[in-house]
């Protein structure tokens, strides 16, 4: 890790500096495009009291779900958390705090955080429990609520390919929250399936420019499928 070369050799290096009570933003939608090895490293490190911001919280035994096993997550900010029995138990027992956030608001909170915008108005959630305690206004007759941006101490991201400079491209719908998350971390760590030589990725195809990325690590991925659906050939 020197200058503009963002590559690191080990997962321990990739997450160096992550300590108890930090906020971690994670890419992924369901189990698609999740930084599965970085999550496994957080489990190995044993850091506790984390606030985790992610659309979902994995499933029992895979993805962010494994961080529940040793109670490493104190608070979860997510839009949908229904796939996880351990999550339900910890929520009902009060060990785990959850802030349910509309999916588009969640994406926009991190986009704003990464772009230096402290808050924004949106119609999403007006008149619902999400609006409780939030400032409301009207623009052109439309009711809106004020939502604050989100940034994290760490952002963990799953990319397809990256180069030494930390330029990243994502594969298919494994993109999802990853580019947004990548912008909003104080330290952004990207794990990828392939690290290519500088110049291989065309400037016009980069999804996440390297300026947002601090560390890149090469991984191998299980890529578990949540709802396997096929048609007859």
């Amino acid at each position: 890790m020197a200058g503009l070369d963002k590559r690191v050799a080990t997962y321990a290096e990739a997450l160096a500096g992550l300590t108890d009570n930090m906020t971690v933003l994670s890419g992924g939608f369901g189990l698609c495009g999740i930084p599965e090895n970085l999550i496994a490293e957080i489990k190995r490190m044993g850091v506790k009291g984390l606030t985790v911001v992610s659309n979902n919280c994995g499933v029992d035994g895979f993805g962010l779900g494994i961080l529940l096993e040793d109670r490493q997550i104190r608070k979860m900010v997510a839009s949908y958390v229904g796939e996880n029995a351990l999550f339900e138990r910890q929520l009902l027992s009060g060990e785990l705090e959850v802030e349910l956030t509309p999916q588009g608001t969640l994406a926009e909170k991190m986009r704003a955080g990464g772009a230096g915008i402290p808050a924004f108005y949106t119609a999403t959630g007006y008149g619902t429990p999400v609006a409780e305690g939030k400032e409301t206004r009207q623009f052109n007759g439309r009711h809106v609520i004020l939502e604050e941006a989100i940034t994290g101490d760490f952002a963990i991201v799953k990319g397809w390919k990256a180069d030494h400079f930390g330029n990243v491209v994502y594969r298919h719908t494994a993109q999802n929250f990853n580019p947004v998350v990548a912008t909003a971390g104080r330290i952004t760590v990207v794990e990828v399936e392939e690290i290519v030589e500088p110049g291989v990725l065309l400037p016009t195809e980069i999804h996440t420019p390297g300026i947002y990325v601090d560390r890149v690590i090469l991984g191998t991925f299980e890529k578990r499928i949540e709802q396997r659906t096929v048609r007859k050939a």
């Binding site: 939608f29 369901g30 189990l31 698609c32 495009g33 659309n55 999916q103 588009g104 969640l106 994406a107 926009e108 991190m110 986009r111 594969r171 298919h172 719908t173 494994a174 993109q175 999802n176 929250f177 990853n178 580019p179 947004v180 999804h207 890529k223 578990r224 499928i225 949540e226 709802q227 396997r228 659906t229 096929v230 048609r231 007859k232 050939a233």
Partner: peptide, 30 residues
């Protein structure tokens, strides 16, 4: 998809495996 073309990186909002049709585009959640 068919069994042959199934791809873990290609899902819909219901988390089902799907395909992209001609003219499709793929982008971030934001």
């Amino acid at each position: 998809p068919t069994e042959e073309t199934i791809d873990a990186d290609m899902i819909n909002a219901g988390k089902q495996t799907v395909t992209a049709r001609k003219g499709a585009s793929i982008f971030s959640s934001a």
